[in-house]
């Protein structure tokens, strides 16, 4: 563990000008990010009357209320969905990580036989997507309709994550792998003892990507689930967000016009973000700390 402002001996003192420029840049970025987010939070705490009066966004609520949150959490629908979402996210991320690590590692040997065609098979899936009907038919044929598995299995491996992870695996210095092999380690042992420990940062990133994907996913639930009791949080929250929005693109059909609910919409954003805020610091540890210090030498 290093002290917060530890500066290695070889690193020169930062110049004053450099520090000012940096501080300014950080300040501007923080403002740009925090201001709208604060607006979202404030609006979620404002009354609908105040929101209407102020035209939609409230920067500081005059009369803060938790009404929007109370609405969302009343009735237990959201609590149940929260359980579903956490389950799907945790198990889905685990399953996806296992499958992705296996495949990415399997493809990380540069001269492997059949390696390139297999990689291309995965890569092309990023470029061609079949559309909802064929996907639906496959899920239906496999008997996955209305099951939690339908939220995980059809999106088990993301080609993007696979390619990125493989790219990091490939860039692990070959010397390390060769020396492990000389020590008699097999392919699996190398994966477990060498590659994975060296890749903590990217593994954390990929796990985060998967987790966020599962957490925010609503579309498969929409197409494949029939019981609202199985709905994940993202779909319930979507129902809140869409309230009062007309169907896009269609002018006459389906135009039941409901009062705006910005307070609830903004509260929904907050509710969806909080769990990620909670998990993030645990993963952040891994991609802000170096792992390769002196690895090659040792």
């Amino acid at each position: 563990m290093t002290a917060p402002t530890a500066r290695p001996a070889w690193l020169e003192r930062p110049s004053l000008a450099g520090r000012i420029v940096k501080a300014l840049a950080v300040a501007i970025i923080l403002t740009l990010v925090v201001y709208p987010f604060l607006a979202v939070l404030s609006t979620s705490l404002a009354t609908q009357g105040e929101i209407s009066r102020k035209g939609g966004l409230v920067i500081w609520p005059d009369d803060p209320t938790l009404e929007a949150y109370r609405t969302i959490f009343s009735g237990g629908v959201v609590t149940k969905a929260l359980v579903v979402s956490i389950g799907v996210t945790v198990l889905g991320t685990l399953a996806s990580m296992v499958a992705t690590i296996m495949m990415a590692y399997g493809l990380s040997r540069k001269d492997m036989i059949g390696g390139r065609p297999i990689l291309l098979v995965a890569l092309f899936t990023m470029l061609f997507s079949a559309g909802i009907i064929p996907n639906f038919l496959v899920v239906k044929q496999l008997g996955l309709l209305n099951s939690y598995a339908s939220l995980v299995v059809p999106v088990l491996v993301s080609a993007f994550n696979l390619v990125v992870l493989r790219n990091f695996f490939v860039n692990i210095p070959q010397e390390l792998i060769d020396s492990a092999r000389i020590d008699g380690a097999g392919d699996l042992a190398i994966l477990v003892r060498l590659v994975l420990p060296l890749s903590k940062a990217v593994l954390a990133v990929i796990a985060l990507f998967y987790a966020v994907e599962y957490w925010n996913a609503f579309f498969h639930a929409l197409l494949y689930l029939s019981d609202t009791s199985k709905w994940p949080l993202a779909l319930i929250l979507r129902a809140y967000v869409l309230q009062g929005q007309p169907t896009t693109g269609s002018m006459n059909a389906m135009s039941d016009s409901l009062p705006p609910q910005e307070g609830i919409q903004m509260a929904v954003v907050i509710v969806a973000v909080v769990p990620i805020l909670l998990v993030y610091p645990f993963l952040q540890r891994y991609f802000t700390k170096g792992v390769l210090t002196g690895a090659i030498k040792g």
Partner: peptide
Amino acid sequence: IYLAALVGIDQQ
């Protein structure tokens, strides 16, 4: 993702 790549750089 770039932060992950940055921590992969050997500090030495």
